[in-house]
Design a protein around this nucleic acid. Sequence first.
DNA 1: CTGAAAGCGCTTACAG
DNA 2: CTGAAAGCGCTTACAG
Lengths: 341, 341
Amino acid sequence: MAGVSPGTVDRVIHQRNEVSPATRTRILKILKKTGYTPNLIAKSLASKKKYRIAALLPSASNDNPYWALPLKGVEKAIAEISDFNGSVDQYFFDLNNEASFIRVSDDLIKDPPDGILFPPVFPKSSLKIIQHLEAKQIPYVFIDSSLDDRNSLSYIGQDAMQSGFLAAKLICYGLRDRETILVINLARPEGIMHHLQKRQKGFISYFNTCRYDKKVRIDSLEIDLTQAGEPELHLDEYFIRNGEVRAIFVTSSKVHKIARYLKAYGKAQILLVGYDLIEENKVYLNDGTIDFLISQQPETQGYLGIMTLFRHLNRQNIPGPVQYSPIDIITAENINYYPYP
Amino acid sequence: MAGVSPGTVDRVIHQRNEVSPATRTRILKILKKTGYTPNLIAKSLASKKKYRIAALLPSASNDNPYWALPLKGVEKAIAEISDFNGSVDQYFFDLNNEASFIRVSDDLIKDPPDGILFPPVFPKSSLKIIQHLEAKQIPYVFIDSSLDDRNSLSYIGQDAMQSGFLAAKLICYGLRDRETILVINLARPEGIMHHLQKRQKGFISYFNTCRYDKKVRIDSLEIDLTQAGEPELHLDEYFIRNGEVRAIFVTSSKVHKIARYLKAYGKAQILLVGYDLIEENKVYLNDGTIDFLISQQPETQGYLGIMTLFRHLNRQNIPGPVQYSPIDIITAENINYYPYP
DNA sequence: CTGAAAGCGCTTACAG
DNA sequence: CTGAAAGCGCTTACAG
């Protein structure tokens, strides 16, 4: 239509400034008038450009089955982008071993990818790798938890404060007047701990809102599982020293460890709220020991993490610096319909 | 590798039997050995085959704002399949006017698409169009509600019974002993009504399970809004004749009409549970009049409806005859994170 | 039964 | 600054 070759049109579309202003504006006008949109299919078929993304995730050990979930989403994304010249290298580290994170991220930096997805569970070591990335202008996306004041392309995860706030609402809704709630924090690596503390903070803050109209007592308990292994002793000790507890809020996916205790010691009637749809938790949700699980579509998080990077590399629009996951409320009655689709 | 032209390879891949058995097996062997998978990108770029899907949906009038939601998902699917030679024709009818459905579906049949998505809200008229479709072997997918004993390619929507069951759990959880629950059904077209009755049935059935440990009285009220317009008078009458009500379950997205009444008449402290994230409901959820909304990712339903048809037409695997949507529990505390993404 | 050629809508050197 | 040509991995007539 402009009387020029496809090559020239291509040049103005991709803003390679080797075109005379005259033809440039002429082509631009026609592009706008005809509402041209590139055919992504043809584009990727013709293009030699390949994008390599790295996913740096905690390995899903017995101790951390949760991380199998985001991985599923990553794999879905891989299947989707592989026809479009996209690939993903997977790197795994041990959530209980910062050295393993450092080792793997050093590996990764040696052969720099075009973008990287990872949860900054080890803040210091994460900062180190981020410096490398920013020096080389490699975009990175945070998943699960975030690091303040960093120029990540996006953070994909839950609004931790608000999820705690919601947990408090759920518990309060079932509470009578003058009962005791216990908040349990099971210690984890620093970056995650920070995340869990936000959940706790949100939980506590609920009781300052006008929606809350009952008198409650709130206790809290911090148990370091990296040392002791299982929480039994700590709980025994707590229950001996203190009176009745009506509800327990556990700030992490390790709620099944508390559930096991409650069930074994005839305390299953205590309201129990925790996080994440891992198998261990599903069992206790179905038998009524756990009353509510708060979930966050971890599969979708993994999927969106990769897709966000891939779209950015292909100069497509991405959602922006924060992509909050939903705060799904899961009960024995609706669990069968998650995840979806 | 087989010393034949690409045309011949194409013939064996697509099982057009114009190939000698000898070369056929030779090519097949190489295909298997090299692990050939077709490049879908190239395939759709080269293919002249275009698939036309029809979406036959209720128009999203002021009376039925809900239907704007599945439409969003349909539009997302359109954007996605348009590069792959897929298109969607949209047809709209009036939910309060079966004649409009008949008219539009007659139109549609005159120019038969390759597949069709619609909610069978008018069972009789739906059966009629289905007969045409089955005669012509045109696949169809149900969205929102279903029709028993029909050979739809898939049903995409909620498990209505179970969503009512969940609603009962939520209400019971906040109830004291010996209180009254009112179930309100706001009459709709037959096919939808059938759906709402399933919700009611699921709700009632909860009180026969072992999880339920309180004494309650359950009332029900059926109000035909197609006649009266607004529910005010019916509710006045009910409240005059009956005692205290502690909780109300409305089986549809019209819960905002009940919320407006409760708020206006100083009854906002009554627990109120209903369906769907339409704007009218969000207002009352945020101000506390509505306590829980049950949602079902209608955008995803519309999206999956189109994608299911498109994948089927392209001979890709599809999920099967029933794709249940999640039964999302929405409160004032988590509403901001839906829909996602 | 089989091959040769054109084309889908782009990108990518290369030549001028 | 611009054009002509080849090619991405397929499909689609057409010819024999």
